[in-house]
Design a protein around this nucleic acid. Structure first.
Length: 498
RNA sequence: CGGGGCGUAGCGCAGCCUGGUAGCGCACCUGCUUCGGGAGCAGGGGGUCGGAGGUUCAAAUCCUCUCGCCCCGACCA
């Protein structure tokens, strides 16, 4: 697509639209290595805003940050049977620490590991850090007085996926992973649920993405977890995106790494664990939740630039009055903590600037021209539409803060309405299949937990169980499974998913 | 790894069928005029046509091999 062409999403070309938004907003590029991604400044800034907000929430709930190594001995991965089963097929493996030569005599790819530099034990690049962390927890934990441990780390991980898509699934991604250790089962499970609630609140308050919370079916559960909790968001094509997970790990890792503590009574008990994480996938979720035909739309709380100030002048002399006025407005906005870009680019017409800021997702634009200077005001345009309106320069900081809050709320409500209109409740499999292929969306159905049937439905409809929604499980009582007709044990949310 | 498609300037593409030594749009550089919703004109820079071999007087174009990418499946946050 030419750089100036409008972005035109179509339902059958949603995937291309998504990639276009990313390119036009200059969020990321493909890297030379297949499946990995270069985060450009604008894309990385969104991640930084996500990170800052989440980090504050983690600290408010008593967590601290630490850092564990990138390389994990291969043998660590094997210690937890399900864990290795889940990750073995997508691990990057390091076997040597030196090359013999980088090019051969023909100047071609001739990279040969030096046989003398072979590692005694291969290392894997972490796909997740449970194993290395629980190895360390084994050394840190002796007494019930050492518990709980509430640690988070911000890191990159590598999962060698076959199919990748920018932000949603890349070979390497940035994330945070929390790993906690507890003395009792209820305390650990409560921690997992507490962090799920942190994620839910964050998704809705900061990303303006409404989510359904729930637990995963056995087949969708994290490798090594007893219970996996999830927040599920609906993208604009009606597919679900798992936006965050929180796992109750039971004593699986404590047993694999032999981590025990002494109780006040003097007994030795295995430690209870949780882990929880969100990744740069959230940037993809933001894009696919809010963006439109013109390009990216960012919720104010994660927008690297919240307000773009565009000064306008034509004739000689106008710049001398307009520019200082615009600078003064920008300074006042910054003084109340608003992230502002003052667009003084020369030789670029105002209309071109407007489109530029729009496709980059900036929530609010302020135009400042000679007419506005005369009135002592700026002319405001919201990224999400509505008539333009004037704002007096006097007290503009407070007024713009209010406007940004309003935009933030509107985005959430707009997304919630969109999702609710596409969330259905059915109790008949035939109707489900028809409705899913006609209109897509999410389906809450009575369900008797059965992995075989789940698999069957996936191959027939491509839909999977996104979760068993929290707060809806009582409704299963007295109903029959929509697939087998047997008494239902759960209410399951089915959907196509990324 | 199966099935389909594509590699030509930074990006998007035409040219290939029917061989004659590379072009268009956008972007970029210079100048002048523009400037409240994607500017116009003039001039200019940039490509050993993914790679290797073959056929030919001559290959982006034909043949063989090879590498890479995209889409659909299997895998997954």
């Amino acid at each position: 697509m030419a750089n100036n062409a409008p972005i035109t999403p179509r339902v059958d070309d949603y995937s291309q639209w998504y990639l276009d938004v990313i390119r036009e907003a200059q969020l990321a590029d493909y890297s030379p290595v297949k499946g990995s991604m270069v985060l450009r400044p604008h894309g990385f800034s969104i991640w930084e805003a996500i990170k800052d907000d989440l980090d504050r929430r983690f600290k408010e709930t008593g967590h601290v940050n630490a850092y564990f190594p990138l390389f994990i001995p291969l043998s660590f991965l094997s210690k937890e049977a399900e864990h290795v089963e889940g990750f073995a097929k997508e691990c990057a493996v390091v076997t040597h620490h030196r090359l013999r030569g980088v090019v051969d005599e023909n100047g071609k790819k001739g990279v040969e590991p030096d046989p003398a530099a072979k590692l005694e034990e291969p290392l894997i690049v972490r796909p997740t850090s449970e194993t290395i962390i629980w190895h360390m927890y084994g050394q840190w934990i002796q007494s019930h007085r050492d518990l709980p441990i509430l640690i988070n780390q911000w890191a990159n991980v590598v999962r060698w996926e076959m199919k990748t898509r920018p932000f949603l699934r890349t070979a390497e991604f940035l994330w945070q992973e929390g790993h906690t250790a507890h003395a009792t089962e209820p305390e650990a499970n409560e921690e997992a649920l507490r962090m799920l609630e942190v994620y839910r609140a964050f998704a809705e308050e900061t990303l303006a993405i409404p989510v359904v919370t729930g637990s995963k079916s056995a087949s969708e559960r994290f490798a090594g977890a007893v219970e996996t909790y999830t927040i599920e968001a609906m993208m604009q094509n009606g597919w679900a995106l798992q936006a965050g997970t929180s796992h109750f790990l039971g004593q699986n890792f404590a047993k694999a790494f032999d981590v025990t503590y002494q109780t006040p009574d003097g007994d030795l008990e295995h430690v209870w664990a949780t882990s929880w994480g969100v990744s740069t996938r959230l940037v993809g979720a933001v894009i696919m939740t809010h963006s439109d035909d013109t390009g990216l739309v960012l919720p104010p709380r994660v927008a690297p630039v919240q307000v773009a100030v565009v000064p306008l002048w034509r004739k000689d002399g106008e710049k001398e009055t307009v520019l200082p006025f615009a600078e003064q407005i920008a300074a006042e906005l910054r003084s109340v903590g608003i992230r502002v870009a003052l667009d003084t680019r020369e030789r670029m017409k105002p209309g071109a600037k407007y489109y530029d800021w729009e496709r980059k997702g900036v929530p609010l634009r302020l135009e400042v021209g000679p007419r506005d200077v005369a009135k002592g005001a700026a002319f405001a345009a919201r990224r999400i539409g509505g008539p333009k309106f004037g704002i007096e320069a006097e007290g503009i900081g407070a007024r713009v803060l209010t406007e940004l809050d309003a935009i933030q709320n509107e985005l959430l409500e707009r997304a919630r309405t969109f999702r609710n209109e596409r969330m259905f409740e059915l109790s008949d499999y035939g109707a489900f299949k028809d409705a899913l292929s006609d209109q897509g969306g999410w389906y809450l159905v009575p369900w008797c937990d059965d992995a075989e049937a789940e698999n069957q439905i996936k191959s027939e409809t491509k839909a999977t169980i996104r979760c068993f929604p929290i707060g809806r499980q009582d409704e299963a009582a007295g109903q029959n499974c929509f697939y087998s007709g047997k008494p239902a044990t759960h209410m399951a949310l089915f959907s196509r998913a990324y």
